[in-house]
Amino acid sequence: MAPKITLTVEPRGKPIRMLPKELTISLDASGYDLHDMIGQVCGVSAHRLRITKGSDRSAVANAKDVSIDDTGLRNSSVIHVKDLGPQIAWRTVFIIEYLGPLLIPALFLFPLRPLLYFNYDTIPAPSYVQLLVCALLTIHFLKREYETIFVHRFSNATMPARNIFKNSAHYWALAGFNIAYWVFRPDAAAASPDYNPALVYAGLAIFVFAELANLNAHYVLRNLRRPGTTERGIPSGFGFNLVTCPNYMFEIIAWLGVFLVSQLNLSVLIFTLVGGVQMYSWAWKKEKRYRKDFGDKYKKKKTVLLAFIC
């Protein structure tokens, strides 16, 4: 049996009700066990606690695959405990984020259509292209919901609950209200019976290819991490030899397909550009993390988001 140590516990920030001054724990216990013990004593979820070492302020991971011995904590070491406030599961956040743009297009195209476009003398029935765009948006976000529930594994279990509004605004406003309102207008290019069939067929082909490639990339990333752990491997496979994050690349390509089908509606392009800027930032952070974590084992990428471009 591994020896036990006694840690000195101090609050960081606001006082925490019933926080013990000392805690005895085995060296072979996990970081998850430490968070859980303190959470049970204080009567709060372990996920809303952040524990750092008093010696160097580094975080003690809330993970089952990191032992207390691994953290460098020893007898009489000081740990600081901070209450992060109410939390919400990352999986729940994504489900809510994607629910808006999943439902809004059909609502705008059908039951809300007379209310949204009341200032038109006549409101024609949705055109073939408008119905097609609605179908593509629905398929895309149904896929997102499927991946959230069945594919993705999250390194962090929760996030501050207050962030749900900020995180959802991008999808609900730009992918939901923005695209649906402008593409489904009675005077939009997508409403015309004289649409450009080349744009439609090219856009459909691009969309189907990119959605399947994106799904494949997500399964590759899923299989790099064992359930219940935060360990990562080096991804490889279709697209990963070109850029750091092919899942982001194929996401952008899929939206370019929607842009073509919509008859080049600027609202789709705006959403794609805004999302692309954010994904570029995330991709570079991931590239830097791969280089740091894997060293010479990792083949550095010159382009992280779009092959041969950026």
Results as ranks from 00 to 15, higher is better:
A59C: 10
L142A: 13
P11S: 11
L73D: 01
E211Y: 01
L174W: 08
V93T: 06
K21H: 10
A213T: 05
G228Q: 11
G85K: 06
K297L: 14
H218K: 10
D121S: 13
L224D: 04
S77P: 02
P15L: 13
Q87R: 11
F207V: 05
E231F: 15
Y117H: 11
F238V: 15
N241K: 12
K288E: 05
D83S: 04
N178M: 13
V93P: 01
D33F: 01
L142D: 00
P114T: 10
V277S: 02
L84Q: 10
G233V: 10
N163T: 06
I96Q: 04
N196F: 15
I96R: 04
T229Y: 09
L103P: 01
G237K: 04
N216W: 14
L142G: 09
H80Y: 14
N223T: 06
F259P: 00
I253P: 04
Y280F: 14
G31D: 06
T138Q: 07
S30C: 12
K300V: 15
T244D: 05
H140W: 02
I38G: 05
L305Y: 06
E145L: 15
A29R: 14
F209Q: 06
A63C: 09
T229D: 02
L107E: 03
E145G: 10
I179S: 01
A89I: 04
C310R: 03
D33I: 08
S267F: 09
L102H: 01
S168E: 07
D296S: 15
H218E: 05
G176I: 12
E287V: 07
L137R: 03
L215W: 10
R153K: 15
L264P: 03
V200W: 01
S127N: 07
F271Q: 09
E231W: 13
H47R: 08
S67G: 10
A189V: 06
L136S: 03
A61I: 11
G54H: 12
K302W: 08
R57K: 15
P3D: 06
K21T: 11
A106Y: 14
I270P: 01
V200N: 03
F108E: 00
F271R: 08
D33M: 12
A157Y: 09
T303G: 00
T71Q: 11
H218C: 08
Y201A: 09
G239D: 11
S236T: 14
D194H: 12
Y98C: 08
S76W: 00
P114Q: 09
R113I: 05
I68F: 10
Q130C: 07
A59Q: 15
V44H: 03
A46Q: 14
V93M: 11
I252N: 00
P227I: 11
N241T: 11
L215T: 12
K285Q: 15
E211G: 02
P246C: 08
A217H: 05
P186G: 07
K302D: 14
Y298L: 09
M37Y: 12
P20A: 05
I164Q: 04
T158Y: 02
P20V: 08
K82Q: 14
L103N: 01
R113S: 02
Y181P: 00
S76R: 14
T6R: 15
N62M: 12
W255I: 04
Y171P: 06
F250V: 03
S55D: 13
S262P: 11
T24F: 08
D69C: 13
P105C: 13
A189P: 00
I79V: 13
L221P: 01
F141T: 05
S30L: 13
L224G: 02
T24I: 05
L102I: 07
N156E: 14
A46P: 04
T244N: 06
L204H: 02
R48Q: 14
T8P: 00
